[in-house]
């Protein structure tokens, strides 16, 4: 098979090779455009997240996909599911707002809890942190799609699979001819 691909490359002339490389670049850049476009529309720095823990079961399982929005005008309310970042933790957390207090000047502070956890999240926050504010929020969950994120979880757990898939896709796109 490898010999076949090498012969395939040899049979191509220069123009054809450049054409294939360009079309490969088109695919990459359109994916990037889609992602950045979603960021602009939703206002969230990461509009699609994969659920990584079971703390919201049975609503969300590991590998489910969530679509987020983060419009500044729409206020956060109790009962909503927010994705937030805590100082000192890399992975954002998906939990539900349990209590919310809004001051007269418009600043809000809120406390979250996972549906499947028996206690609220004060133990998960940074030491001494009692409440979350708007600045900690990455987005609010608006849409749900099951299972799709399992692919990325497997890819992150077994990096070799990721490189193999990327290599196969790259070779396929480069050598594919109409």
């Amino acid at each position: 098979m490898i010999q076949g691909t090498i012969e395939e490359i040899k049979r191509m002339n220069k123009r054809q090779f450049i054409y294939q490389v360009l079309s490969f670049g088109m695919i990459v850049s359109s994916a990037l455009m889609l992602w950045k476009g979603l960021m602009v529309i939703t206002g969230s720095e990461s509009p699609i997240v994969v659920v990584l823990s079971g703390s919201m079961e049975p609503a969300f399982h590991r590998g489910d996909l969530l679509f987020l929005t983060n419009n500044k005008e729409e206020p956060i309310r109790a009962g909503e599911i927010v994705v937030f970042k805590v100082q000192g933790r890399d992975i954002p957390i998906v939990h539900r707002v349990l209590k919310l207090h809004e001051k007269k000047n418009g600043t809000t502070k809120f406390l979250t809890k996972g549906d499947n956890n028996s206690v609220d999240d004060r133990g998960l926050y940074a030491p001494g942190q009692q409440w979350l504010t708007k600045d900690d929020v990455v987005g609010r969950a608006q849409g749900f799609l099951p299972y799709i994120g399992l692919v990325t979880i497997y890819m992150n757990e077994y990096p070799k699979v990721k490189y193999a898939i990327l290599a196969c896709l790259g070779i396929y796109v480069l050598l594919h001819r109409e």
């Binding site: 009962g79 919310l100 549906d115």
Partner: peptide
């Protein structure tokens, strides 16, 4: 697939213009 039902209290105080506290929930 599931309903997350919750009962919340909403009120105003002298220091806060809006307070929302979930008092009870059920899956």
């Amino acid at each position: 697939k599931q309903l997350f039902v919750y009962l919340y209290a909403e009120y105003e105080t002298s220091s806060n213009s809006l307070n929302q506290v979930i008092l009870w929930d059920k899956i």
